[in-house]
């Protein structure tokens, strides 16, 4: 099935638009439906599609395991770090108001950063789970 040119070409055509759609969902979350959770899953789906058509090894070349594991932790760090940054600015934990002069600008900025953290973690966890399941070798 993997050698079928239809799958290869269709997955090549779809790969970019899926990621762009994921980014749209990620950064448009405060205007329309969506946000970090959904966007992370959508972007992970693009990479999973690639792995399914071209094989797990090719997928691992595209997105190596060490990057996946680092991005997993990076997302939580971005979210938690935003809270620490609020404290350093003199506000409560995860209070976005000191990030800009106007309160709504500060909120927009805070929400975008926090959602980015969620998106990064969800993306890496989903892709990592798929790689772990697909590459699992049962022990004797």
């Amino acid at each position: 099935m993997r050698d079928n040119p239809v799958f290869k070409i269709v997955s090549k055509i779809l790969f970019g638009p899926i990621i762009i759609y994921g980014l749209y969902v990620q950064f448009h979350g405060d205007y329309g439906p969506g946000g970090g959770f959904q966007a992370g899953v959508i972007v992970a789906a693009a990479f999973i599609l690639y792995s399914m058509i071209y094989g797990l090894e090719e997928g691992r070349k595209l997105m190596p395991d060490w990057i996946i594991r680092s991005v997993m932790a990076l997302g939580v760090l971005v979210f938690g770090g935003t809270g620490i940054a609020s404290i350093l600015f003199g506000a409560n934990y995860l209070d976005y108001s000191p990030f800009a002069y106007k309160i709504y600008k500060a909120q927009h900025l805070g929400i975008i950063i926090v959602e980015l953290g969620v998106g990064l973690t969800v993306f890496a966890v989903m892709l990592g789970l798929f790689n772990a399941f697909a590459g699992f070798k049962p022990h004797k």
């Binding site: 205007y31 439906p33 946000g35 809270g83 709504y104 909120q107 805070g110 929400i111 926090v114 969620v118």
Partner: peptide, 23 residues
């Protein structure tokens, strides 16, 4: 806050701790 989607607003700003926990 001038954010049209109330869900995102509740998720990330009113309930920021919950979302951190979920992540």
């Amino acid at each position: 806050f001038h954010i049209p989607n109330v869900v995102t607003n509740v998720l990330a700003s009113y309930r920021g701790f919950d979302t951190l926990g979920e992540t």
